[in-house]
Simulated scan of single mutants.
Amino acid sequence: MMDSEESERMSFLLSRLLEKDIGTKEEVDIRRKTVLFKEQFDNANNENHSIFNTGSSAEGFALRGSDNDAMIVDKTIMTVNSKHQIPSDSKHDMVLLLRDANNCQHGHVELEIAVWRRCKQPLYKSFHPVGSRTFISSDIYREEHVKHALNLGFNVASHGPSSGADATGTNAAFDVVHAFHCPVWPKDAIEWKTRKRLYGWPTETVLIKIIEGGCHLVPIGDKCSDNTLLQWRISFAYAERLLVHSLSHSQFKVYGLLKIFLKNIKVRLEAISKEEEILSSYILKTVIFHAVENTPETFWKEKNTFTCFWFCFSILCAWVKAEYCPNYFIPKNNLFKRHIHGQNKTKLLQLLSEIHNMKWMCLSVGTYVKPSIMDILLNKSHQADLMQNQTLLQSEALL
C-alpha cells in the first residue's frame, strides 16, 4: 500500500511514461494540426461533399491501432427543424425536415423530404413513403453505400452507422460514415447548452463554437428499438473533437491511459459478450467528459495522474452498477440500455471489482502493453530514464 508521497512520485513517473507513449503536448498539437490541414485541403474544392475526420487519430493519438475514421457529409442536402426555416432561394438538391422519432431513446430523429430537386442513387433508393409523406430510411441508405463500396472493390462491411474495414497487414482499421449536417443545435440537447458548469469547462468560447457548429445525422437507429428503418442518430462528432482538443495535456494523457486500459482488458470483455462490444472507447470518452466538467483543472496535475485515472474508473464502476451511462450531451439517452444488465452486468461487475481491488497493480493487467505499465514503473532503470527525460525537458524549457 503506497502512502500519499509515494503515490505522487509514482503518478509523476506514470505521467512521464504516458508522455513517451502518447507524446508531448507539442507532438499532439502537430498531429492535430496535420489532420486539420489535410481536411481543409481535401475539402477546398469539393462542392458536393466535405470530409470530417473522427476517431483516435483526429483526436491526436498515435497509439497502436488508432483508428482513422471519417464522416463524408453531403453538402447538397439541407436539414431544417421546420418548414419556416427553408430559405426561398435555397439551391440544395434536397431539403429534409427533422421529425421526432417514435418508440426510441432521445437523440434520434426521422427525416422527411420537404423539397426534392435531384439526388444520387443511394439516397433515391432510400425513399420510404408513409401515407402522403416520404421519409429517408437510414437502414437502406447505409446499406446502399456498403453495396456501392463493395462494387468498387473495397472489402467493407456495415458496422454501426458506417462502412468499416478491419485492419490488415498493410492498412489500419477505418470506418466511413455518410452523414448529413444539421446547422441547428438539436432540441434533445438543449440541457447541455444551458447546463450550469461549476468549473468553467468547456470554456464559453468552445461552447459557442460547438453550438454554432450544430450536429450531424448518421444512418443508424436506436438499437433498443423494434423498428429502426426510419431512425437517424444525432451525432456530436464535431463537438466531441473540439472538446478533446480543449483538454489540458494532463487530462488528455489520462484519457489515453483509459484507452490503453480498455485495450488491456479487451480479451476479458470479449469473454463476457462475444456478440457486441460491452465497453467501448466511446464510453470512456463519455467518462472523461463528465469527469473533467465536474472537477477543477487544478485536480488534473501530474502528481495526481493515477488518482485522476482512478476517479474516472470509479465513475465507470458506478454507472455499471446503476446500469446507466448518461450520454454527455443527452443524459436521458442511456448508453448502457441495450447490454449492461442481467448476466452481462454481473460478469462485468465481477471483472471491474477484481480490478478495483488491485489498485495500482491494475496497470499490470492485460497484454496490449508489454512489458506492462506497472512493470516499467517498478523497474529502477526505467524510473531513472523517466526522471532523466523530465530533467532534459525542464532544461530545454529554460533555454
Results as ranks from 00 to 15, higher is better:
227 N>E: 03
235 S>W: 07
252 F>V: 09
176 V>N: 02
120 K>C: 10
166 D>R: 08
368 Y>G: 12
91 K>I: 06
21 D>H: 05
120 K>L: 12
124 Y>W: 06
260 I>H: 04
274 K>F: 07
38 K>Y: 15
230 L>N: 00
123 L>Y: 00
306 F>Y: 09
241 R>H: 09
194 T>Y: 12
101 A>I: 04
257 L>W: 08
180 F>Y: 15
155 N>R: 14
195 R>Y: 08
59 E>M: 13
220 I>Y: 00
193 K>L: 15
99 R>G: 03
254 V>L: 09
323 E>M: 14
289 F>G: 01
356 H>F: 07
11 S>R: 03
24 T>G: 10
121 Q>H: 05
63 L>I: 03
281 S>K: 07
320 V>A: 04
267 V>T: 10
330 I>D: 05
265 I>Q: 03
277 E>F: 01
258 L>S: 06
338 R>N: 12
194 T>V: 07
257 L>D: 01
188 D>V: 11
30 I>C: 07
244 V>P: 09
190 I>P: 10
186 P>A: 11
369 V>R: 01
7 S>Q: 09
259 K>W: 01
47 E>Q: 10
310 W>K: 04
248 S>D: 05
88 S>M: 15
192 W>V: 08
291 A>T: 06
316 L>M: 11
107 G>V: 04
94 M>S: 02
386 L>N: 01
177 V>I: 08
373 I>M: 11
320 V>H: 01
44 A>Y: 11
107 G>Q: 04
311 F>P: 01
144 E>V: 03
